[in-house]
Computed example of a mutant assay.
Amino acid sequence: MRKWVKEHGLLLANAGLFLAFFVGMILSGAAAYSEDQTTHGQPGVTVLEYLSTGDFVEATFENWESEFLQMAMYVILTVFLFQKGSSESKPMGKTAPQDQDPRDATIKDSTPWPVKRGGLVLKLYEHSLSILLLLLFLASFSLHAAGGAAAYSEEQQSHGQPTVTMLQYLATSRFWFESFQNWQSEFLSVAVLVGASVYLREKGSPESKPVAEPNYETGT
């Protein structure tokens, strides 16, 4: 068990932090939503009731949407683009291991089965990481729109205005403001990481070059 935990420590730590912060978001979100309801003469909600509100769905998936977009675009852009001196870039002027054609690989027992199978299965497997991230982005984008439409309609009703459908909500400036304010921050953080890793180091981290390596060296 101890060995398994050590082998999966990075995933477990991030999953644990996600759950802790997600619970914190739910509890504080339910409290904030209930306060807003009370202010407008409406009854507050329990935590479980809050989970079914458009407010919760919108708040959750507008953030997930930006994270998956960021990671999908980062994975795709690093296939084609380089940053001299950055640990986040593939080496320049030489072939990286990631560029090797799996069809030329020596088949072993440990070789992933899509590589052994070949054909369309291998073609999909070659791009499976970006496909997964893009699908998660599209799902989150849709749920953001659905939750946002429900929350917006609730506000509209409280002011005696007509409700909106999900498609109508997609045409509002509010939806795109929510999306763009998250998207811009995600790409800012990536740009800072890519640029800072040229000159700065973190000993022991695979996201950093070795501390004594020159700034112009590209890749890990």
Rank of each mutant, 00 (worst) to 15 (best):
G9V: 13
L188V: 13
I131Y: 11
V45P: 00
A149P: 07
L193R: 13
G24F: 00
G9T: 13
A150G: 03
A20E: 10
I107D: 00
G119S: 14
M71W: 00
S142R: 08
T53M: 03
F61A: 06
P114G: 03
Q157T: 05
K90E: 08
P162N: 06
A171Q: 13
S173T: 12
E202M: 10
E65F: 12
H159G: 03
Q83N: 09
N215W: 04
Y74H: 07
V5Y: 09
E65K: 15
D99C: 08
F175N: 13
Q156L: 09
E178S: 11
N215E: 07
G219L: 05
A105R: 00
E49G: 14
H144Q: 10
S205I: 09
P112Y: 03
L133H: 01
L167N: 07
G195S: 14
Q42E: 08
V121C: 11
I26R: 04
E49P: 05
A150S: 11
L170M: 15
K203N: 11
T78I: 00
K6F: 11
H40Q: 10
Q161Y: 03
T38A: 13
V115E: 06
I131V: 06
F68Y: 13
K108V: 00
P102I: 02
W183E: 07
L12S: 04
E207F: 15
W4Q: 13
L133W: 02
L77A: 15
Q83A: 12
I107R: 01
A59L: 09
K84A: 10
S28A: 14
P43M: 05
V194R: 11
L10H: 08
E207T: 09
P97M: 13
F82H: 13
V79K: 15
L19I: 08
L122S: 08
Y33M: 01
N14Y: 10
W64D: 01
Q161M: 13
T46M: 09
A20S: 14
T172F: 06
A191T: 15
G160A: 07
A15Q: 15
Q184Y: 15
P210I: 12
D104I: 02
D55I: 02
T163F: 04
T95Q: 14
V75S: 10
T111P: 00
M1E: 11
S34F: 03
